[in-house]
């Protein structure tokens, strides 16, 4: 039920994001979702891709600083209050959310949201108990 997310350390210099994207393009890796967290001097680019192993290899070979993190992908009803309904069970299970971001594409009628939490397993079972669909990695990579 866990999804592999790839993070890349980027200095705030023009052209660095382009270089990451070029590197992935050369490796034939497709980006499914991404977000950037930034400070004044640097940023962290977070990616969900179709072929995580290939992406890790290509980026490390080109000497980018990369790491892998486990996140979860949840189907969220695409209507007012949809995200609140998903956050409810996590709050009750005392799961702390580090960050979230959304997929561009939808999964059927629902939006797809990526959660990075401290307690991954606890979060998955809380969401499943509340009746939400947590997508397995394979399914997410191939959307």
């Amino acid at each position: 039920m866990k999804v592999r997310q790839i993070s890349v350390f980027l200095e705030n210099k023009s052209g660095r994001l382009l270089e990451v994207c070029r590197c992935l393009a050369r490796a034939g890796v497709n980006i499914r979702a991404l977000s950037i967290a930034e400070t004044a001097d640097y940023g962290v680019l977070r990616l969900i891709v179709d072929q995580p192993d290939l992406a890790m290899d290509a980026l490390s070979r080109e000497l980018f600083t990369v790491s892998e993190t486990e996140v979860i992908a949840v189907e969220v009803p695409d209507r007012p209050g949809g995200l609140a309904e998903v956050l409810e069970p996590l709050h009750e299970a005392n799961v702390n959310i580090e960050y979230i971001y959304c997929f561009v594409e939808k999964s059927g009628e629902s939006a797809l949201v990526v959660f990075r939490v401290e307690q991954v397993d606890q979060a998955i079972s809380a969401l499943q108990r509340a009746g939400f669909t947590v997508l397995p990695g394979e399914k997410v990579y191939n959307i």
């Binding site: 993070s7 350390f9 967290a37 962290v44 490390s60 600083t65 990369v66």
Partner: peptide, 15 residues
């Protein structure tokens, strides 16, 4: 320089 060994995905860790 940030090596892969100390790189964290979370800004608060880097800070």
């Amino acid at each position: 320089e940030v090596s892969p060994q100390i790189f964290s995905d979370e800004i608060k860790e880097l800070e």
